[in-house]
Amino acid sequence: MTASLPPRQTCPPGLCTCGLERLLETPGADTRILLLTRPEEKRLIERLENLQSLADLEKVQQRMFEQLGIRLSIAPGFNEVRSMRGIAIQIDELPGLCRKTRQAIPAAIRRGLEKRPEIAYRLLDAHDLFRDS
Rank of each mutant, 00 (worst) to 15 (best):
Ala107Pro: 00
Leu54Phe: 11
Leu97Thr: 04
Leu72Pro: 06
Ile109Phe: 05
Ile105Leu: 12
Ala126Gln: 04
Leu94Arg: 07
Gly86Gln: 09
Leu35Asp: 04
Met64Ala: 10
Leu97His: 07
Asp56Met: 01
Gln61Asp: 02
Leu35Ser: 02
Leu5Pro: 07
Gln62Ala: 15
Gly19Glu: 03
Cys98Asn: 02
Arg116Lys: 10
Phe65Cys: 06
Pro12Ala: 14
Met64Asn: 01
Ile105Gly: 01
Lys59Ser: 13
Arg122Met: 09
Thr17Gly: 14
Gln103Met: 12
Leu15Tyr: 14
Leu129Gly: 01
Glu118Tyr: 03
Ala55Phe: 13
His127Cys: 02
Pro7Gln: 11
Arg63Asn: 05
Glu25His: 13
Thr2Trp: 08
Val60His: 00
Leu94Tyr: 08
Met1Arg: 15
Leu57Met: 15
Arg38Lys: 13
Arg99Cys: 13
Leu97Gln: 02
Leu48Phe: 04
Glu41Pro: 03
Leu123Trp: 00
Gly86Ala: 01
Leu35Pro: 04
Arg122Ile: 06
Glu25Ser: 13
Leu44Tyr: 03
Cys11Ile: 04
Leu129Trp: 08
Leu123Thr: 02
Leu35Arg: 11
Arg110Cys: 07
Arg43Thr: 11
Ser73Phe: 06
Arg131Ser: 13
Arg116His: 09
Arg111Lys: 15
Asn50Ala: 08
Ala107Asp: 09
Gln67Arg: 15
Pro95Lys: 14
Leu48Gln: 09
Ser4His: 09
Leu72Trp: 01
Leu129Glu: 02
Thr31Gln: 15
Gln9Arg: 15
Gly86Lys: 01
Arg102Asp: 06
Glu80Asn: 14
Ala107Asn: 09
Glu58Ser: 03
Gly69Pro: 10
Arg38Ser: 10
Val81Cys: 03
Leu72His: 02
Ile45Arg: 02
Cys16His: 06
Ile87Lys: 09
Phe130Lys: 04
Pro76Trp: 01
Ala75Lys: 13
Gln103Ser: 15
Ile119Glu: 08
Pro106Asn: 00
Ser83Val: 00
Leu24Arg: 12
Arg8Ile: 10
Leu34Phe: 05
Asp132Asn: 08
Ile74Gln: 05
Met84Tyr: 08
Glu21Lys: 10
Met1Asp: 14
Ala108Arg: 06
Phe78Asn: 14
Pro12Ile: 11
Gly69His: 08
Leu34Gln: 03
Val60Asp: 01
Arg131Phe: 09
Cys16Ile: 09
Arg8Thr: 03
Leu68Lys: 04
Ser133Ala: 14
Ile119Gly: 03
Met84Trp: 07
Arg43Val: 05
Glu118Thr: 11
Pro39Leu: 04
Leu44Ala: 00
Cys18Ala: 05
Thr101Asp: 08
Ser73Asn: 12
Glu40Gly: 05
Gly69Ser: 12
Arg116Val: 03
Asn79Glu: 11
Leu123Glu: 04
Arg38Thr: 14
Asp92Cys: 12
Thr2Cys: 10
Arg47Lys: 11
Thr31Met: 07
Ala108Cys: 09
Glu66Pro: 03
Arg32Ala: 06
Phe78Ala: 15
Ser83Tyr: 01
Asp30Glu: 04
Ile89Ser: 10
Gly28Ile: 02
Arg71Cys: 11
Arg63Ser: 13
